[in-house]
Amino acid sequence: MLGIDLGSRTVKIVLMKNREIMACSLYDTIRFYRQFSRSSRGKLQLDFNGLNLDPETEMVATGYGKIAVTIAGAQKIPEIQAHAFGALFQSRCENFTLLDIGGQDTKVIQVQKGDIVDFATNDRCAAGSGRYLENMASVLEINWEQLSSYDQNPVELNATCAIFGETELIARIVEGHPTSHLAAGVNYAVFKRVAPLLKKLYSDTIILSGGGALNPALVRMIREETGCQVLPIKEPRLNGAIGCCVWGQGWK
């Protein structure tokens, strides 16, 4: 079973057999569309050779929403379902709130007794998403790992817009704050943006997925500020694609 998550920044492909991940790959979204697919009759035909995939494998795809295409030969499921299934499978937990911080959007999904009971998605812009974190890291001239390690003494930042956030951050740099406080401020700004959603869709267990899960400073902030337990999952970035496979194989 192939699971494909067409994210806004990266495309994730996972091959699963009997509930085990056999292979996985990640592509830059633009490169994926340019090199490994072409559209014909309104559908996307995948270049199985180039992608090193067996065209006979069953496919389930998600994330098509933003670009409004369907992959020829694939079943499609909504992103919320794909992510919830991925988290159910990876965590073996039945009651949780999933926070997915992706390249350009954020999703919060509340799951109770294994069913999705509510969800929320971010506004139409990329504020507070992976794109924001990346942009801010480059303003601070540090890499993603460095940015993700600071959570102490956050400088106050209000704009989480991937563009306007820059202006605000530069103003703080001018004020002379150390990089560690500035980086913590960036992480805290992301937390502040999702905090109301976590409160609204409350569970005492929070699962993080997407690129945001790879930010330990953010994880610590969420744990400390919400008092909830934050459960790690093994493959946060592949979660949606895994969810596709799990769905395709029929849960249980």
């Binding site: 409004a68 909504p78 009971v117 969800f119 998605t121």
Partner: peptide, 13 residues
């Protein structure tokens, strides 16, 4: 597309 995704997820849920 975004609204469609949210609608689909809601109906599916």
């Amino acid at each position: 597309a975004r609204t469609r995704m949210r609608l689909e997820s809601f109906v599916n849920m």
